[in-house]
């Protein structure tokens, strides 16, 4: 029997609160050893979906397979979860908190202690181990929560806004830890509004809005799908009329060329190279940022709804 390459499979899950359809027939998969981005505007149904995956709330319909089967108590020890609404016991010490949460994830006390010590040293929290949680700074607290969620080396890690409250240095530390876990084979599902982090870290994404899937698949493909038909060029010489170009804008010493429909950048490059009066020094396809895609997709939906209304 071949083992599934999926760490998480979600099929047609739905959840309704009173009259609000929080999640509507949502399906997606997360592969082992990938960082998967779960995106969506506020209130899109991300947290509800995560809570259904973690069996905190039950879906009204649909199936969820976590690490090869339905969620069981044994599966819970193979999952790490950093919720958006997070908090630790403020009257406990940092080390005591990690020992407690580690043991709840089925680590022995000795293993929990060894792991906690290693993580605290790596994240430069060792000197704060005997401080109460209430005495920690926001950044320290955030790092402590991350350790608590991952110290048992889970196979599926779900992190909700993992970088909020972190300065760039600490964000880099957490990012490296996530990479290390991914390289170990863990599947990581990351929900965040920080699009640059998604662009940097995620191989595939799911964008949901109003509980439904809007975009889903490899990030590269999605970006290609939304790529504007434009290129930027730096060149020597003066550029006049170029066949296949609809509009030409001079920009920072170079040009941005908006291509006519059906014209491929490769064709344009050939045309430019064959023009004797100019020498092409840089030719680059203009990529659409994820941020732009997000705004375009979600914004379009909002505009459509307003139009319908």
């Amino acid at each position: 029997m071949t083992q599934s390459t999926y760490a998480l499979e979600v099929h047609d899950i739905s959840k309704t609160y009173a009259t609000v359809r929080a999640v509507d027939n949502l399906s997606f998969e997360v592969h082992k050893g990938e960082i998967f981005g779960l995106l969506g505007p506020n209130g899109a149904g991300k947290t509800t979906s995560i809570r259904m995956i973690l069996d905190i709330i039950k879906p009204d319909a649909g199936q969820i397979s976590v690490l090869g089967g339905p969620m069981t108590e044994a599966t819970k020890s193979r999952i790490g979860y950093l919720p958006e609404e997070r908090g630790l016991y403020e009257d406990m010490t940092l080390l005591g908190t990690l020992l407690f949460l580690g043991q709840l994830k089925d680590l022995t006390r000795q293993t929990a202690r060894a792991r906690a010590e290693a993580y605290l040293r790596e994240l430069e929290l060792w000197d704060a181990r005997d401080l109460k949680i209430e005495a920690l700074s926001r950044g320290m607290n955030q790092k402590a929560q991350f350790v608590a969620a991952t110290m048992h080396e889970p196979d599926l890690i779900i992190v909700d806004e993992p970088f909020s409250g972190l300065d760039p240095v600490n964000a880099r530390i957490i990012k490296n830890l996530l990479y290390r876990m991914r390289d170990r084979g863990a599947a990581i599902m990351m929900s965040t509004h920080q699009m640059h982090q998604v662009e940097e870290m995620c191989q595939r994404i799911l964008l949901i809005d109003h509980g439904s899937r809007v975009l889903y698949g490899p990030l590269d493909e999605i970006r290609r799908q939304f790529a504007s038909n434009a290129v930027e060029v730096d060149l020597r010489g003066k550029l006049g009329h170029v066949p296949g170009v609809e509009r030409l804008v001079s920009r920072n010493g170079g040009y941005r060329l908006l291509l006519q429909d059906g014209v491929q950048p490769e064709q344009l490059l050939r045309t430019l190279v064959n023009m004797p009066e100019i020498t092409v020094e840089r030719f680059e396809r203009v990529e659409t940022s994820l941020d732009e895609i997000f705004v375009r997709v979600v914004g379009r939906k909002v505009a459509n709804e307003e139009g319908t209304a």
Partner: peptide, 13 residues
């Protein structure tokens, strides 16, 4: 109020 339950509840029934 301390919002600690969500993390704990994913570790046990």
């Amino acid at each position: 109020e301390q919002r600690s339950m969500e993390m704990i509840i994913t570790s046990l029934a």
